[in-house]
């Protein structure tokens, strides 16, 4: 446990030692603003909720989270520091979790910095703050899911650009798993039970439920399982390919 904390701490500090953290946060907040006010029509709707704000999170994460995730392991590989990390007395799980948690915490910080919009909506009207809290939680969980996918892909690649593109594609498929774009590919030759299972994997479906304030334990569990599964895959990929 202690090792996870130390690794996560080192990792998090390294974000802020480079321009990466600041660039990411500025772009994240600017894009959030653009999406919410221009595309989402936050004022024009005349409703005291944050639906236009949260409905664009999946699309923003689709590109920004892989940008954070792509360097997680690819960078260690490129600089050779992975050899140092893997020969220190830490387990593979401690290393994987430490790096993942650092990145997740960083995204949480960026997400927390969107608090002015929450203040704004409370100032302008009388929103249901319970829904907003649930939506924030859902958004963070979804970001964790994207991040776990990206961490695993990053471990399999030395090249950060390749890691980024592959991660975006996989995240995109996971996001839209419940929609015709993905389902039409499988329908016709797979039984309905499998199709239901695939559509059940959709990030968007689970996120939409959470963002409407329905704090269903199954949706939370879904994201935690996705994170767990991809991080498990991450440890296996590292075990197999750490020295390549």
């Amino acid at each position: 446990m202690e090792a996870i904390r130390i690794i996560a701490g080192r990792e998090l500090r390294s974000y802020f030692a480079t321009p990466l953290a600041y660039v990411f946060i500025v772009i994240f907040l600017a894009m959030m603003g653009v999406f919410t006010f221009y595309l989402g029509g936050f004022y024009e709707r005349g409703q005291a909720d944050l639906t236009p704000f949260f409905s664009f999170h999946p699309w923003l994460y689709l590109f920004l989270v892989p940008a954070i995730a792509m360097r997680l392991w690819a960078e260690e590989r490129k600089s050779g520091s992975i050899e140092l990390l893997m020969t220190l007395p830490v387990t593979m799980w401690e290393a994987v979790l430490g790096k993942f948690l650092a990145a997740w915490l960083f995204i949480a910080v960026a997400l927390a910095l969107t608090f002015p919009i929450w203040i704004t909506v409370n100032y302008l009207g009388d929103p249901d703050n319970g829904v907003i809290v649930a939506a924030y939680l859902g958004s963070l969980l979804m970001a964790g899911g994207f991040l776990a996918i990206g961490a695993c892909i990053s471990a399999a690649n030395r090249n950060q650009v390749v890691a980024f593109i592959v991660t975006v594609v996989i995240c995109f498929l996971f996001m839209l798993a419940g929609f015709p774009l993905v389902l039409n590919f499988f329908s016709g030759w797979l039984p309905t039970a499998v199709l239901d299972a695939i559509s059940g994997l959709s990030f968007l479906t689970h996120f939409n439920a959470l963002s409407k304030g329905v704090l269903d334990i199954r949706d939370v569990l879904y994201f935690l399982l996705v994170i767990g599964a991809w991080l498990y895959a991450n440890t296996i990929v590292l075990e197999l390919r750490k020295a390549d």
Binding site: R10, A17, G80, L84, L88
Partner: peptide, 30 residues
């Protein structure tokens, strides 16, 4: 690994860290 000090080929380290921080990190892990 606890009983081992290992210098990998090329002496890789975390480039953005200063030696003081780096040694602090390795020491705490150990």
């Amino acid at each position: 690994k606890r009983r081992l000090g290992y210098l990998p080929e090329g002496a890789p380290a975390y480039g953005e860290m200063a030696p003081g921080e780096f040694l602090h990190f390795v020491g705490r892990i150990r």
